[in-house]
Design a protein around this nucleic acid. Structure first.
Lengths: 223, 223
DNA sequence: CAATCTGTTCACAAAACATTCACAAATAGA
DNA sequence: TCTATTTGTGAATGTTTTGTGAACAGATTG
């Protein structure tokens, strides 16, 4: 039976998640903040942690770092939309998934199950940097260099580019891109993604060749 | 075409949702309360139900319980603000998603589509790659390599080839191919499939030998 | 509080595509 | 071999998808 640690300061959220998790047959332990989570991790093993970002005592990011020093447990982050959002991409590259509030519990559980199932499979990408010929991407520094020259991209463009690069060689549907970059319950015009792609392509100049259009699907960063 | 049952006592709400759902290409049936919904479910199958909570005759929760005794149809609940979220979760443990009024029809439809998609993915094969001599097929990257050289196929051609490969060594009728690649009850000229097969054969060159014509039946990818 | 910067949308242009058709070629059965 | 039936093929057509610039509103900054 998979053991799951639910970390959130709101008791209602914890209760909701607990109910759904138990319906799936998971064993649930709750913690009301990062500190409590850390202590529970010390004394017990979990298969997965479901953790909010905004919490008193020890926020989700810090808790995540501390926990990962101890044990390599997969983590799904819960975040309110907008809140610290880009940190997810800019700073924390080790989390397994994240869900934007308000979330659908079924969706959360689907992700939990997916993460548990693919335990052992290679993770997303934990590197700080990636480079392709003269195109260098610094995830932590949030820079993109073209032939050694730093270019200026808007926040959403960075995030989109980072997402594509982290998923290089994967044909990404616009839906996946939307989920990955904007959050699962975000809905916008397909043309919006295209517009950002256009800006990125303009920015990276000749290296635009790496961003290929997958007609009828979406895009792919292909090395 | 997905069939959707819209249940709300307000005729205006139903009309709005109907309009959007039909724009998405869904087939819509309306019910003005839970009782009517229950009756409609008895005589017809739906892919998803969109249901208000507060209704005369039979409220959303009770209707949900009754309906789920009959058929396991995904349900998205509509709730007025004030009817607390956790009430939703506290009482009902099976719903797939919920939307708080006043809602944006666009958001509702996005959630409807997400739920339909989630429920319709029993995933046959999870393979990422397959290769036959010098013919390599990368499902995630959506590439086909012939002797290490990437070839360009059009979207439908990829899909058709992927379908054949996933069902390798199975003689597929044109009907099955139609269902598998184009979707349920799609009708088109048999020559269309042949035309795509032709393009694939041209693309994979000497490995065309794997795609064998089953006269009077359809095609087979034979290893 | 104004000026700027961003994200999003829209309408249209451009490109890529799917489908059909008419006919040729192949096949199998009599 | 001859014929009926099925499949292969190339060109023509109409549809769908993507690229793009301008316009807008909301957020952010000074």
């Amino acid at each position: 039976m998979p053991r799951i640690l639910i970390v959130d300061d709101e008791v209602n959220i914890r209760a909701i998640l607990r109910r759904y998790a138990e319906l799936e047959g998971h064993e649930v332990v709750e913690a009301k903040d990062g500190l409590e989570a850390l202590n529970k991790v010390k004394i017990k093993d979990f298969d997965i942690i479901l953790m909010d970002i905004m919490m008193p005592e020890l926020d989700g990011f810090s808790a995540y770092k501390e926990i990962h020093k101890l044990k390599k447990i997969p983590v799904i982050m819960l975040s309110a939309r907008g809140e610290e959002y880009d940190k997810l991409y800019g700073f924390e590259l080790g989390i397994d998934d994240y869900v934007v509030k308000p979330f659908s519990p079924k969706e959360v559980m689907a992700r939990v199950n997916a993460v548990i199932k693919r335990c052992g499979e290679p993770k997303v990408e934990q590197l700080d940097k990636a480079s392709f010929e003269g195109l260098e991407i610094d995830f932590t520094g949030r820079d993109v260099l073209v032939d050694g020259r730093k270019i200026k991209l808007k926040p959403k463009e960075y995030e989109l580019l980072f997402y594509l690069v982290k998923n290089r060689n994967v044909a990404l549907t616009r839906d996946k891109i939307l989920n990955g970059v904007w959050g699962y319950d975000y809905y916008l015009d397909d043309r919006t993604i295209d517009a950002h792609i256009k800006a990125i392509r303009a920015g990276i100049g000749k290296y635009r060749k790496y961003i290929v259009t997958m007609r009828g699907i979406g895009y792919k960063f292909e090395v």
